[in-house]
Design a binder for these strands. Structure first.
Length: 494
RNA sequence: GGGGCCAUCGUCUAGGGGUUAGGACACCGCCCUUUCACGGCGGCAGCACGGGUUCAAAUCCCGUUGGCCCUACCA
């Protein structure tokens, strides 16, 4: 099971998002796998920001990623320091690509040029576009024809830089193929002839994505590149670059994509795609981690897939212990909000009030902060059946202010003349401890020939304006005697 | 067009020659109940299609269909 880990190499994974303005949950899932794998093997998890697209990369957007990762509990061992572009943690920084331009990419490009492994190409984008269009019109496959490969152009004229890709007979090829032994997808073969000499640096001198990735991953000593499988087709290009640079290539693991409910790539029209939105919907970060991890991954316990509810609800520690790239699915998975909701509910039920409180607080009014710990504990425990923090906060709304309006049908149904005497008597109760309340209720309903339900529902309507609230004794305790008497009094003394 | 990947209930999946094709979510029903919930029990529902190979195919092979990725001086 651990054959994927070569014993000689320190485990280093990395998550490398580009700052587009949000943190996509597909990205979070990839990051989660990287994180789990690193944790499992006592390795290092790096966050690297791919901000070479100047039009989209802003400090604000980078911050959104950093904060999203932090909220999700995916803390990085090496990477940027939140909110301070000039700082980073780790020996191989900086961890923002734009800051590596002169120090890392430029020298690497020059070296390749000097060694004759890359070359200057004077074909302009316009010329290439024209040739591509012509080829397409003729129904042919367009590939760059390598016309500048042996021209030995100097730098006296504008030129892009291309990598000399293998032609087919290089000894490191396997029967003319670039072979990728992917830890998830298995052995993948790409005919060398299907790849052309790709551009590693643009005419303006800026390096391209596939180039930066390889330079960074080697420089940061990444041992396992775990990323979305939309990068599978990029990998043979990168493998060729590793050979040109004479670096040992890392292990690759390409995780399947997350699709929307209809099987199309998960996008805005499916609803929430940004991690921030899930935060706002009232999900616990632990639930998001679990739901995302269980998409495409089936943990095996002693070789057997998990198959009970108990096993389904893994803790972080269990996930880390059980994590194995070999148990990840090859095919894409559709994101199911129902399952996230269920996991969220279960995890809320199982959490202590202290674990919930920091995540819950943002959904509550200022008044929450002035409550005692005992009261907070009580409030959380009495609403812990909720599906989300938003729903839980909704359950507590009656606490913060008297009802703005009353459900008239409920008033007519429950606040009847026969229960009003009981309501009056209830106002006399002094002791709001659970057992005392129960005893008080029992004597009142007995005396008035009512059922508990009759009194409880009448109280709910009087106190909350509607016949729904937390368990009735909790409702009373949370409100406190003074407030209960005030709200009930309006109905019985008026 | 070329290169590559993928295909078991509605969804996530287990199973990889002989299984009544197993589990979870969702859904439906019943029970419990101080409301709403929670919880308990039960039910519905699936191997994309067509050919092979084999005594036997969800499982192996080929093809078809469908979905996705790459094919940029985007990342």
């Amino acid at each position: 099971m651990t054959s994927e880990v070569s014993m000689s190499r320190r485990i280093v994974t990395r998550f490398a998002p580009s700052p587009t303005g949000m943190l996509h949950i597909g990205g979070v899932r990839t990051a989660l796998f990287c994180w789990l794998f690193a944790k499992k093997h006592g390795g290092t998890f790096i966050l690297r920001v791919e901000d070479t697209d100047l039009t989209r990369s802003t400090d604000d957007n980078i911050r959104i990623i950093e904060e999203g990762m932090e909220w999700c509990g995916l803390l990085w061992d090496e990477g940027p320091v939140v909110g301070d572009p000039s700082k980073w943690i780790g020996p191989n920084g900086p961890y923002r690509q734009m800051q590596r331009m002169e120090s890392h990419y430029k020298p690497a490009i020059q070296k390749l040029l000097d060694e004759g492994k890359a070359y200057r190409c004077r074909c302009t984008k316009e010329e290439l576009d024209g040739r591509r269009a012509m080829a397409e019109k003729a129904g042919e496959i367009f590939q760059y024809d390598r016309r500048c490969r042996e021209a030995n152009h100097d730098d006296s004229q504008p030129a892009s830089i291309r990598l000399k890709m293998p032609l087919g007979s290089e000894p490191w090829l396997e029967q003319g193929d670039i072979v990728l032994r992917d830890l998830i997808k298995g052995e993948l073969r790409f005919p060398a002839t299907s790849l052309d000499d790709w551009i590693i640096a643009r005419t303006d001198g800026t390096p391209t994505y596939n180039f930066c990735v390889v330079v960074d991953d080697t420089d940061m000593e990444v041992s396992h590149v775990i990323r979305g499988d939309d990068h599978v087709a990029n990998t043979p290009k990168q493998i060729a670059l590793y050979h040109a640079m004479e670096y040992e290539a890392p292990a690759f693991a390409h995780v399947p994509m997350i699709l929307g409910k209809d099987g199309a790539k998960l996008s805005k029209r499916h609803g929430a795609t940004s991690i921030t939105e899930y935060q706002q919907m009232g999900f616990l970060p632990s639930a998001v981690r679990l739901a995302l991890a269980r998409l495409s991954w089936t943990p095996k316990i002693d070789g057997r897939a998990i198959d009970t509810v108990e096993e389904e609800l893994l803790t972080d520690e269990e996930m880390i212990q059980l994590f194995d790239l070999g148990d990840i699915q090859k095919s894409p998975a559709r994101f199911d909000l129902d399952k996230l909701n269920w996991m969220n509910q279960k995890l809320i039920q199982r959490a202590t009030w202290q674990e919930i409180e920091p995540h819950f607080r943002p959904f509550l009014p200022e008044a929450w902060n002035s409550k005692s710990d005992a009261w907070k504990a009580h409030a959380i425990q009495s609403t812990q059946k909720g599906k989300s923090l938003v729903e839980m906060a909704g359950f507590l709304e009656f606490v913060w202010a008297p009802p703005a309006e009353f459900d008239q049908a409920a008033v007519a149904k429950f606040i009847t003349e026969t229960v009003k005497p009981a309501l009056k008597e209830l106002c006399a109760l002094q002791d709001y401890e659970h057992d005392a309340l129960h005893a008080g209720f029992n004597s009142i309903i007995e005396k008035n020939g009512l059922k508990l339900k009759d009194l409880a529902q009448a109280l709910r309507v009087a106190l909350c304006g509607k016949p729904v609230s937390p368990p009735i004794f909790d409702t009373l305790m949370l409100l406190g005697r003074d407030e209960v008497v005030a709200r009930v009094g309006k109905w019985v003394w008026a």
